[in-house]
């Protein structure tokens, strides 16, 4: 063969091969044709979700947001890359939240919850006997789609149209798409909430929040890969490493103190346009070393607003808005600004 042609052939073949491989990497995992599944009613699907016990599994949960906020390194919840979740099917779990190059590991072993932070090399032991595991820890709760989706479904049934809208493939598994659409009279920024439910285990695999006028989910929490099956028992044991700082925490007491200091926040309105109104503990904003951070962060994110309810700073995202008034009250919800200010006005 003509060497020029041969060279060209090799170049084209190699480049095509490499580009195909890269293209494969760029295609989001789990995408693909919608699987064919026997039809199921919305009611039955919700029911089965609420009834199903999550089986033993190992998976990776990824959190995506398109909130329209500037990227904020260091803001914990927005910065979470992904978490690996292990569950033994009987209540013990291990969640490893990956945060840059450090990791927070939460191991629930029977009645003991260990939390280990590699960045500070600290291990915190909590006695979990008295509470429900799901309410144990906000981070754990967010990272467990099962809990998050189930809660949402039951709460929103009253004000939403619940339907099954086709199927999807999530983390390689066929799933039903349960869609919650706000009823027309609801004043909300959200268009719909979709929950992908595994066709077999009825485990919610993905939760997506979509807003008006966008096709990409504003918020998405879901498995990127998942394997069902028994997990090695040592995953659910934790021994603090030598040299780590070990503390025993009583989160309940502390939480109660926080709540008392803050004044119990209350919900104004119900359904999709519910607004959470409350008072920010004074020392969060003024004092403590966090002070500069919180105020500085707010200044960067917010715009000043005022009205007959007072004046304050407004933070708008694609899925919701929040107002922090100058006198320390706050209101937030998945609603437009007017609903918030109305809620603030109803003292």
């Amino acid at each position: 063969m003509n060497p020029k042609r041969k060279a060209l052939a090799v170049a084209v073949a190699g480049t095509a091969l490499g580009a195909a491989g890269l293209g494969l990497l760029a295609v989001p995992a789990g995408a693909g044709e919608a699987p064919e599944l026997p039809p199921v009613g919305a009611q039955a699907l919700v029911q089965s979700v609420l009834e199903a016990d999550p089986p033993a599994l190992a998976g990776t949960v990824a959190f995506d947001n398109q909130l329209g906020l500037p990227s904020m390194p260091g803001v914990p919840m927005l910065d979470m890359d992904s978490a690996r979740v292990y569950y033994d099917g009987e209540g013990d779990s291990r969640i490893a939240v990956q945060d840059g190059n450090s990791e927070q590991t939460i191991v629930r072993d029977g009645n003991t919850v260990w939390m280990y932070d590699s960045a500070t090399d600290t291990a915190t032991k909590t006695d979990a006997r008295s509470h429900h595991p799901r309410e144990e820890n906000p981070q754990g709760r967010m990272s467990d789609p099962a809990a998050a989706a189930a809660d949402l479904v039951s709460d929103l049934r009253a004000s939403s149209t619940v339907s099954v809208d086709g199927t999807a493939r999530v983390a390689g598994r066929p799933a039903y798409e349960l869609v919650l659409t706000p009823k027309p009279e609801e004043r909300t920024l959200l268009r719909e909430v979709r929950v992908a439910v595994d066709s077999e285990s009825r485990l919610p695999l993905r939760l997506s929040v979509l807003t008006n006028g966008t096709t990409e989910p504003a918020l998405q929490l879901g498995f990127t890969d998942i394997d069902f099956g028994a997990q090695p028992a040592e995953l659910f044991e934790f021994t603090p490493p030598r040299g780590a700082t070990v503390t025993e925490a009583e989160p309940d007491v502390e939480g109660a103190r926080d709540a008392a200091r803050a004044g119990e926040p209350r919900l104004v309105g119900e359904g999709w346009d519910a607004v959470l109104v409350g008072r920010v503990p004074a020392d969060v904003l003024s004092g403590g070393e966090e002070d500069g951070n919180v105020r500085g962060m707010l200044d960067r994110l917010s715009t000043r607003v005022s009205g007959d309810w007072g004046s304050g700073q407004l933070v708008s995202t694609s899925i919701g808005t929040a107002i922090l008034t100058d006198d320390g009250r706050f209101a937030l919800g998945a609603v437009p600004q007017q609903v918030l200010t109305k809620a603030l006005a109803t003292r």
Partner: peptide, 24 residues
């Protein structure tokens, strides 16, 4: 694994281009 595959793709592309250039 993804990173390894990505590196392999780069190697395939780069070496094939290098071959094409070097051989002519």
């Amino acid at each position: 694994a993804e990173g390894a595959l990505r590196a392999a793709c780069y190697i395939a592309i780069a070496l094939s281009l290098a071959y094409a250039r070097l051989s002519t």
